Amino acid sequence: MTESTPLTTPFNARTTAAEIVAGIDLAGHRAVVTGAASGIGVETARALAAAGAEVTLAVRSVEAGERTAEDISATTGNKHVFVAPLDLADQASVAAFTAAWDGPLHILVNNAGVMMTPETRTPEGWELQFATNHLGHFALATGLHPALAAAGRARVVALSSVAHLRNPVDFDDIHFRVRAYDPRVAYAQSKTATVLFAVEGNRRWAGDGITVNAAHPGAILSNLTRHLSPAELDRTVATGGYVFKTPQQGAATSVLLAVSPRLEGVGGRYFEDCDEARRHAPGASGGVADHALDPDAAARLWQVSLDMIASA
């Protein structure tokens, strides 16, 4: 593959979500942020609300969501912050959310996720990380497609991770029914799937005025890292060259993709630190892997995902 010059912005790894939305008016826009009761999800929702958007926090715990909504409304003055239950590992929950949605949707931020969990399976027998990080969000986005199309110009932001560099999607054994379960491999595969979703989703939906991009938020200490021991966290930092961001900084790339006029019409790409990522080079700590931007793999994953959800 040949690489075009990546898109850059005036922002960087230290930029906060509030700085991204400064001067942007989202009045009349409606947004959904998954996993918005903790971590960077809170700050993503807060920035969108601060810019005047109506924001729905799609969360597993409605109680936690209500507390977050009250906090966001208090800090932004925006009373149009709502809460709706959503468990991405439960396809019935996803279907109920999409069925209940009424009217256009301008911004969908697929922020929620689980990371390096012990081997766990959904009732369908799906591996939990793939089921949550990819299949749940895939079902959510495809279910909300009519609402996104109705908005005229809508944006979908899919949260990935630098971990995607480790592994492509293993189409022969996605759910670890044959190979031994490895939480790191499972997480990496799910985050590659997130980028592939952006590639194929943008190809399919650009004609509807919908752009889809993937974002690596950076390393942030949050509930997402709860399955990592202190030793594992230290090893991850040492081997990855990470500098931890604040949640406000971690939300910046997602918010950039959701609202920035600089990204109008831009889709199917992977961003980190508020810039489009370069192709990963051996030995480099960041960038995007060729296997995550492979259009054939993206198309295959889309069909595989449709088939899985249809059989659920």
Rank of each mutant, 00 (worst) to 15 (best):
E3R: 06
S4H: 14
S4E: 14
P10D: 09
N12Q: 06
A18L: 12
E19C: 06
E19T: 09
I20E: 11
A22E: 15
A31W: 02
V32M: 12
V33C: 01
A37V: 04
G39M: 10
G39S: 10
G39A: 10
T44V: 11
A49W: 06
A50N: 03
E54K: 09
R60A: 07
E63Q: 15
T68D: 04
A69N: 08
E70P: 03
E70H: 13
G77P: 07
G77T: 11
G77K: 12
K79Y: 00
V81Q: 00
V83L: 07
A84R: 15
A89M: 11
D90V: 07
Q91K: 01
S93D: 13
S93Y: 07
V94D: 04
F97I: 05
A100M: 08
G103Y: 07
H106G: 03
P118F: 12
T120F: 09
T120S: 12
P123C: 05
P123N: 05
W126S: 08
W126P: 09
L128F: 12
T142N: 01
G143V: 08
G143Q: 08
G143E: 09
L144W: 03
L148C: 00
A150D: 12
A154R: 08
V157D: 07
V162I: 13
A163E: 04
A163T: 10
H164K: 12
P168M: 06
V169S: 01
F171G: 11
D173V: 02
I174A: 03
F176R: 06
F176M: 06
R177I: 10
V178G: 02
R179G: 00
D182R: 09
D182E: 13
P183H: 11
V185E: 14
K191C: 01
T192L: 03
T192G: 01
V195H: 07
R203G: 10
R203S: 12
W205V: 02
A206D: 11
G207V: 07
D208W: 10
G209N: 10
I210Y: 04
I210W: 03
N213I: 10
A215H: 02
G218R: 00
A219T: 10
L224N: 02
P230F: 07
L233M: 14
R235Y: 00
T236K: 04
T236R: 08
V237E: 09
V243M: 09
V243D: 14
F244P: 02
Q248A: 15
Q249S: 05
Q249N: 07
Q249Y: 05
A251E: 03
A252E: 09
V255P: 04
V255Y: 04
L263M: 15
G265C: 07
R269G: 05
D273V: 02
D275N: 15
H280N: 05
A281K: 13
A281E: 15
P282Q: 12
G283M: 12
A289P: 06
H291N: 03
L293M: 15
L293W: 05
R300I: 02
R300T: 12
L306E: 15
I309W: 02
I309E: 01
A312N: 07
